[in-house]
Design a protein around this nucleic acid. Structure first.
Ligand SMILES: [Mn+2]
Ligand SMILES: [Mn+2]
Ligand SMILES: [Zn+2]
Ligand SMILES: [Zn+2]
Lengths: 138, 138
DNA sequence: ATACAATTGCAAACAATTTGCAATTGGAAA
DNA sequence: TTTCCAATTGCAAATTGTTTGCAATTGTAT
Protein backbone atom coordinates (compact mmCIF):
# COMPACT_ATOMS: atom_id res chain seq x y z
CA UNK A 1 0.00 0.00 0.00
CA UNK A 2 1.30 3.39 -1.03
CA UNK A 3 1.12 6.41 1.26
CA UNK A 4 -0.39 9.76 0.31
CA UNK A 5 3.10 11.13 0.01
CA UNK A 6 4.21 8.39 -2.35
CA UNK A 7 1.17 8.97 -4.50
CA UNK A 8 1.89 12.67 -4.55
CA UNK A 9 5.42 11.88 -5.67
CA UNK A 10 4.24 9.67 -8.49
CA UNK A 11 2.30 12.63 -9.83
CA UNK A 12 5.05 15.10 -9.21
CA UNK A 13 7.60 12.96 -11.02
CA UNK A 14 5.27 12.88 -13.98
CA UNK A 15 4.91 16.69 -13.78
CA UNK A 16 1.17 16.30 -13.32
CA UNK A 17 -0.80 18.67 -11.10
CA UNK A 18 -1.72 17.14 -7.77
CA UNK A 19 -5.49 17.24 -8.11
CA UNK A 20 -8.16 15.43 -6.13
CA UNK A 21 -9.42 13.35 -9.07
CA UNK A 22 -5.92 12.20 -9.91
CA UNK A 23 -5.13 11.21 -6.36
CA UNK A 24 -8.42 9.36 -5.99
CA UNK A 25 -7.96 7.57 -9.29
CA UNK A 26 -4.41 6.60 -8.46
CA UNK A 27 -5.45 5.28 -5.04
CA UNK A 28 -8.21 3.31 -6.68
CA UNK A 29 -5.89 1.82 -9.27
CA UNK A 30 -3.56 0.79 -6.48
CA UNK A 31 -6.38 -1.27 -5.00
CA UNK A 32 -7.24 -3.07 -8.20
CA UNK A 33 -5.55 -6.40 -8.67
CA UNK A 34 -6.43 -6.96 -12.31
CA UNK A 35 -6.96 -4.93 -15.46
CA UNK A 36 -10.34 -3.23 -15.65
CA UNK A 37 -12.22 -1.16 -18.20
CA UNK A 38 -12.77 2.56 -17.76
CA UNK A 39 -16.40 1.78 -16.96
CA UNK A 40 -15.47 -0.71 -14.25
CA UNK A 41 -12.96 1.62 -12.68
CA UNK A 42 -15.51 4.41 -12.80
CA UNK A 43 -17.97 2.39 -10.72
CA UNK A 44 -15.38 2.21 -7.98
CA UNK A 45 -15.21 6.00 -8.00
CA UNK A 46 -18.94 6.46 -7.59
CA UNK A 47 -18.80 8.04 -4.15
CA UNK A 48 -16.19 10.49 -5.33
CA UNK A 49 -18.34 11.91 -8.11
CA UNK A 50 -15.50 11.88 -10.58
CA UNK A 51 -16.75 12.18 -14.13
CA UNK A 52 -16.15 9.32 -16.53
CA UNK A 53 -14.63 11.84 -18.94
CA UNK A 54 -12.13 12.87 -16.33
CA UNK A 55 -11.27 9.25 -15.80
CA UNK A 56 -10.61 8.76 -19.50
CA UNK A 57 -8.45 11.86 -19.62
CA UNK A 58 -6.60 10.84 -16.49
CA UNK A 59 -5.97 7.34 -17.78
CA UNK A 60 -4.66 8.82 -21.00
CA UNK A 61 -2.22 11.08 -19.21
CA UNK A 62 -1.17 8.30 -16.83
CA UNK A 63 -0.59 6.12 -19.83
CA UNK A 64 1.54 8.72 -21.51
CA UNK A 65 3.56 8.95 -18.32
CA UNK A 66 3.96 5.20 -18.03
CA UNK A 67 1.99 4.97 -14.81
CA UNK A 68 -0.71 2.96 -16.52
CA UNK A 69 -0.75 0.50 -19.39
CA UNK A 70 -3.42 -0.97 -21.58
CA UNK A 71 -3.90 -4.70 -21.53
CA UNK A 72 -5.54 -6.47 -24.41
CA UNK A 73 -7.72 -9.27 -23.09
CA UNK A 74 -9.41 -9.95 -26.42
CA UNK A 75 -12.59 -8.40 -25.11
CA UNK A 76 -14.45 -5.57 -26.74
CA UNK A 77 -13.14 -2.79 -24.55
CA UNK A 78 -9.81 -1.47 -23.40
CA UNK A 79 -8.49 -2.74 -20.09
CA UNK A 80 -6.25 -0.54 -17.97
CA UNK A 81 -3.87 -1.39 -15.20
CA UNK A 82 -1.28 0.31 -13.06
CA UNK A 83 2.14 -0.30 -14.55
CA UNK A 84 4.43 0.08 -11.57
CA UNK A 85 5.73 -3.48 -11.73
CA UNK A 86 6.13 -5.18 -15.07
CA UNK A 87 4.12 -8.35 -15.52
CA UNK A 88 1.86 -10.32 -17.86
CA UNK A 89 -1.35 -12.34 -17.64
CA UNK A 90 -2.90 -15.70 -18.29
CA UNK A 91 -6.63 -15.49 -18.96
CA UNK A 92 -9.32 -18.15 -18.83
CA UNK A 93 -11.43 -17.62 -21.92
CA UNK A 94 -14.30 -19.42 -20.25
CA UNK A 95 -14.65 -17.87 -16.79
CA UNK A 96 -12.33 -14.88 -17.26
CA UNK A 97 -10.15 -15.86 -14.34
CA UNK A 98 -6.81 -14.07 -14.43
CA UNK A 99 -3.37 -14.99 -13.24
CA UNK A 100 -0.42 -12.61 -13.21
CA UNK A 101 3.08 -13.74 -13.96
CA UNK A 102 6.50 -12.39 -14.54
CA UNK A 103 9.36 -14.23 -16.15
CA UNK A 104 12.86 -12.97 -16.63
CA UNK A 105 13.67 -15.56 -19.28
CA UNK A 106 10.98 -14.16 -21.54
CA UNK A 107 12.41 -10.71 -21.20
CA UNK A 108 15.84 -12.02 -22.17
CA UNK A 109 14.53 -13.81 -25.25
CA UNK A 110 12.71 -10.67 -26.31
CA UNK A 111 15.97 -8.78 -26.25
CA UNK A 112 17.53 -11.43 -28.44
CA UNK A 113 14.68 -11.11 -30.89
CA UNK A 114 15.14 -7.41 -31.19
CA UNK A 115 18.83 -7.84 -31.88
CA UNK A 116 17.91 -9.98 -34.86
CA UNK A 117 15.53 -7.42 -36.25
CA UNK A 118 16.34 -5.69 -39.52
CA UNK A 119 14.23 -2.62 -38.95
CA UNK A 120 14.42 -2.16 -35.17
CA UNK A 121 17.28 -1.85 -32.76
CA UNK A 122 15.46 -1.56 -29.44
CA UNK A 123 12.09 -2.20 -27.84
CA UNK A 124 10.34 0.33 -25.68
CA UNK A 125 7.66 -2.01 -24.43
CA UNK A 126 5.83 -5.19 -25.24
CA UNK A 127 2.53 -6.88 -24.61
CA UNK A 128 2.18 -10.53 -23.82
CA UNK A 129 -0.94 -12.31 -22.65
CA UNK A 130 -1.74 -16.00 -22.63
CA UNK A 131 -5.20 -17.40 -23.20
CA UNK A 132 -6.52 -20.79 -22.21
CA UNK A 133 -8.93 -22.75 -20.06
CA UNK A 134 -8.23 -22.78 -16.34
CA UNK A 135 -8.01 -26.03 -14.37
CA UNK A 136 -11.35 -25.41 -12.74
CA UNK A 137 -13.11 -24.89 -16.06
CA UNK A 138 -11.31 -27.74 -17.81
CA UNK B 1 -1.26 -17.80 -52.95
CA UNK B 2 -4.12 -20.13 -52.15
CA UNK B 3 -6.31 -21.66 -54.83
CA UNK B 4 -10.09 -21.51 -54.88
CA UNK B 5 -10.16 -25.11 -53.81
CA UNK B 6 -7.91 -24.52 -50.84
CA UNK B 7 -10.07 -21.60 -49.74
CA UNK B 8 -13.13 -23.77 -50.06
CA UNK B 9 -11.45 -26.37 -47.89
CA UNK B 10 -10.59 -23.86 -45.20
CA UNK B 11 -14.28 -23.07 -44.94
CA UNK B 12 -15.37 -26.68 -45.15
CA UNK B 13 -13.00 -27.71 -42.36
CA UNK B 14 -14.50 -25.00 -40.21
CA UNK B 15 -18.00 -26.26 -41.08
CA UNK B 16 -18.89 -22.90 -42.53
CA UNK B 17 -21.15 -22.55 -45.54
CA UNK B 18 -19.25 -21.76 -48.74
CA UNK B 19 -20.79 -18.36 -49.48
CA UNK B 20 -19.61 -15.62 -51.81
CA UNK B 21 -18.95 -13.09 -49.05
CA UNK B 22 -16.86 -15.55 -47.10
CA UNK B 23 -14.78 -16.57 -50.09
CA UNK B 24 -14.20 -12.93 -51.07
CA UNK B 25 -13.26 -11.96 -47.53
CA UNK B 26 -10.93 -14.90 -47.19
CA UNK B 27 -9.25 -14.11 -50.50
CA UNK B 28 -8.87 -10.52 -49.42
CA UNK B 29 -7.36 -11.45 -46.08
CA UNK B 30 -4.89 -13.68 -47.90
CA UNK B 31 -3.66 -10.62 -49.78
CA UNK B 32 -3.15 -8.47 -46.71
CA UNK B 33 0.35 -8.53 -45.28
CA UNK B 34 -0.37 -6.81 -41.99
CA UNK B 35 -3.20 -6.56 -39.47
CA UNK B 36 -6.00 -4.20 -40.49
CA UNK B 37 -9.17 -2.89 -38.91
CA UNK B 38 -12.61 -3.98 -40.06
CA UNK B 39 -13.00 -0.58 -41.70
CA UNK B 40 -9.76 -0.92 -43.63
CA UNK B 41 -10.57 -4.41 -44.78
CA UNK B 42 -14.02 -3.27 -45.80
CA UNK B 43 -12.56 -0.64 -48.15
CA UNK B 44 -10.78 -3.42 -50.01
CA UNK B 45 -14.13 -5.12 -50.51
CA UNK B 46 -15.86 -2.08 -51.97
CA UNK B 47 -16.29 -3.49 -55.45
CA UNK B 48 -17.84 -6.61 -54.04
CA UNK B 49 -20.60 -4.73 -52.22
CA UNK B 50 -20.19 -6.77 -49.08
CA UNK B 51 -21.80 -5.09 -46.12
CA UNK B 52 -19.63 -3.98 -43.22
CA UNK B 53 -21.96 -5.89 -40.92
CA UNK B 54 -21.31 -9.05 -42.85
CA UNK B 55 -17.61 -8.43 -42.56
CA UNK B 56 -17.90 -8.11 -38.78
CA UNK B 57 -19.92 -11.29 -38.56
CA UNK B 58 -17.55 -13.11 -40.83
CA UNK B 59 -14.50 -11.99 -38.90
CA UNK B 60 -16.17 -13.13 -35.71
CA UNK B 61 -16.88 -16.58 -37.07
CA UNK B 62 -13.42 -16.85 -38.62
CA UNK B 63 -12.01 -15.87 -35.26
CA UNK B 64 -14.01 -18.51 -33.49
CA UNK B 65 -12.69 -21.03 -35.98
CA UNK B 66 -9.10 -19.92 -35.56
CA UNK B 67 -8.80 -18.70 -39.14
CA UNK B 68 -8.37 -15.14 -37.96
CA UNK B 69 -6.89 -13.57 -34.87
CA UNK B 70 -7.04 -10.14 -33.28
CA UNK B 71 -3.81 -8.25 -32.92
CA UNK B 72 -3.46 -5.52 -30.33
CA UNK B 73 -1.42 -2.68 -31.79
CA UNK B 74 -2.22 -0.25 -28.98
CA UNK B 75 -4.45 1.70 -31.31
CA UNK B 76 -8.07 2.54 -30.71
CA UNK B 77 -9.57 -0.14 -32.86
CA UNK B 78 -9.32 -3.87 -33.28
CA UNK B 79 -6.88 -5.18 -35.86
CA UNK B 80 -7.53 -8.49 -37.58
CA UNK B 81 -5.22 -10.81 -39.41
CA UNK B 82 -5.31 -14.23 -40.98
CA UNK B 83 -3.92 -16.76 -38.53
CA UNK B 84 -2.73 -19.55 -40.78
CA UNK B 85 0.90 -19.25 -39.77
CA UNK B 86 1.69 -18.30 -36.19
CA UNK B 87 3.75 -15.14 -35.79
CA UNK B 88 4.13 -11.89 -33.87
CA UNK B 89 4.93 -8.25 -34.62
CA UNK B 90 7.26 -5.42 -33.84
CA UNK B 91 5.64 -2.03 -34.28
CA UNK B 92 7.18 1.41 -34.67
CA UNK B 93 5.15 3.70 -32.44
CA UNK B 94 6.27 6.66 -34.51
CA UNK B 95 5.68 5.69 -38.15
CA UNK B 96 3.61 2.52 -37.57
CA UNK B 97 6.03 0.38 -39.54
CA UNK B 98 5.50 -3.29 -38.85
CA UNK B 99 7.82 -6.26 -38.85
CA UNK B 100 6.67 -9.83 -38.48
CA UNK B 101 8.67 -12.37 -36.59
CA UNK B 102 8.47 -15.89 -35.32
CA UNK B 103 10.65 -17.41 -32.67
CA UNK B 104 10.59 -20.98 -31.46
CA UNK B 105 12.46 -20.17 -28.26
CA UNK B 106 9.65 -17.89 -27.13
CA UNK B 107 7.15 -20.64 -27.68
CA UNK B 108 9.23 -22.99 -25.55
CA UNK B 109 9.50 -20.52 -22.70
CA UNK B 110 5.77 -19.93 -22.81
CA UNK B 111 5.21 -23.63 -22.31
CA UNK B 112 7.49 -23.56 -19.31
CA UNK B 113 5.51 -20.67 -17.88
CA UNK B 114 2.26 -22.51 -18.20
CA UNK B 115 3.69 -25.53 -16.45
CA UNK B 116 4.47 -23.31 -13.47
CA UNK B 117 0.97 -21.91 -13.33
CA UNK B 118 -1.26 -22.75 -10.39
CA UNK B 119 -4.56 -22.15 -12.09
CA UNK B 120 -3.81 -23.20 -15.68
CA UNK B 121 -2.44 -26.33 -17.23
CA UNK B 122 -2.39 -25.40 -20.91
CA UNK B 123 -2.50 -22.42 -23.21
CA UNK B 124 -4.74 -22.24 -26.22
CA UNK B 125 -3.18 -19.13 -27.66
CA UNK B 126 -1.19 -16.08 -26.80
CA UNK B 127 -0.59 -12.57 -27.98
CA UNK B 128 2.81 -10.97 -28.13
CA UNK B 129 3.70 -7.70 -29.78
CA UNK B 130 6.75 -5.52 -29.35
CA UNK B 131 6.70 -1.74 -29.54
CA UNK B 132 9.58 0.59 -30.22
CA UNK B 133 11.10 3.11 -32.58
CA UNK B 134 12.39 1.77 -35.88
CA UNK B 135 15.93 2.45 -37.09
CA UNK B 136 14.70 4.90 -39.70
CA UNK B 137 12.74 6.94 -37.14
CA UNK B 138 15.44 6.78 -34.47
C1' DA C 1 -2.69 37.38 -2.61
C1' DT C 2 -2.60 37.27 -7.80
C1' DA C 3 -2.37 35.36 -12.29
C1' DC C 4 -2.60 31.96 -15.59
C1' DA C 5 -2.16 27.55 -17.46
C1' DA C 6 -3.82 23.12 -16.46
C1' DT C 7 -7.64 20.49 -15.19
C1' DT C 8 -12.43 19.41 -14.57
C1' DG C 9 -17.57 18.51 -15.41
C1' DC C 10 -21.37 18.58 -18.26
C1' DA C 11 -23.58 18.21 -22.68
C1' DA C 12 -23.10 16.81 -27.05
C1' DA C 13 -20.84 14.45 -30.78
C1' DC C 14 -18.54 10.49 -32.67
C1' DA C 15 -16.85 6.10 -34.22
C1' DA C 16 -16.87 1.40 -33.95
C1' DT C 17 -19.48 -2.48 -33.28
C1' DT C 18 -23.85 -4.99 -32.45
C1' DT C 19 -28.78 -6.23 -32.94
C1' DG C 20 -33.44 -7.17 -35.15
C1' DC C 21 -35.67 -8.74 -38.87
C1' DA C 22 -37.13 -9.93 -43.45
C1' DA C 23 -35.14 -11.64 -47.71
C1' DT C 24 -31.71 -14.72 -49.80
C1' DT C 25 -28.72 -18.63 -50.16
C1' DG C 26 -26.21 -23.20 -49.83
C1' DG C 27 -26.37 -27.76 -49.31
C1' DA C 28 -28.63 -31.92 -47.25
C1' DA C 29 -32.46 -34.83 -48.01
C1' DA C 30 -36.04 -36.52 -50.79
C1' DT D 1 -33.38 -32.33 -59.73
C1' DT D 2 -36.39 -30.20 -56.90
C1' DT D 3 -37.73 -29.19 -52.18
C1' DC D 4 -36.86 -27.60 -47.67
C1' DC D 5 -34.81 -25.38 -43.82
C1' DA D 6 -31.26 -23.65 -41.13
C1' DA D 7 -27.56 -20.59 -41.95
C1' DT D 8 -26.28 -16.37 -43.84
C1' DT D 9 -26.86 -11.77 -45.63
C1' DG D 10 -28.10 -6.68 -46.12
C1' DC D 11 -30.30 -2.79 -44.49
C1' DA D 12 -31.83 0.23 -40.80
C1' DA D 13 -31.60 1.25 -36.27
C1' DA D 14 -29.65 0.82 -31.72
C1' DT D 15 -25.95 0.46 -28.53
C1' DT D 16 -21.47 0.92 -26.51
C1' DG D 17 -17.27 2.91 -25.63
C1' DT D 18 -14.74 6.93 -26.20
C1' DT D 19 -13.74 11.73 -27.55
C1' DT D 20 -14.53 16.83 -28.11
C1' DG D 21 -15.97 21.76 -27.03
C1' DC D 22 -16.38 25.02 -23.77
C1' DA D 23 -17.12 27.57 -19.59
C1' DA D 24 -16.13 27.10 -14.71
C1' DT D 25 -12.75 25.59 -11.26
C1' DT D 26 -8.32 24.43 -9.33
C1' DG D 27 -3.26 24.14 -8.37
C1' DT D 28 0.97 26.17 -8.25
C1' DA D 29 4.50 29.50 -9.42
C1' DT D 30 5.29 34.35 -8.71
MN1 LIG E 1 7.24 -8.62 -20.01
MN1 LIG F 1 3.86 -17.03 -30.61
ZN1 LIG G 1 -11.90 -20.68 -16.01
ZN1 LIG H 1 9.32 4.16 -37.58
Amino acid sequence: MKTKVEIKNLLQNAKLKNTTPRVVILETLLNIKHPETAGEIHKRLKKNKIDLVTLYRTLASFEKNKLVKRVDLHKDAIYYELDLDHHHHIVCTKCNKLERFENSEIEKVLNKIISKSVKFKNIKEHSLELFGICKKCA
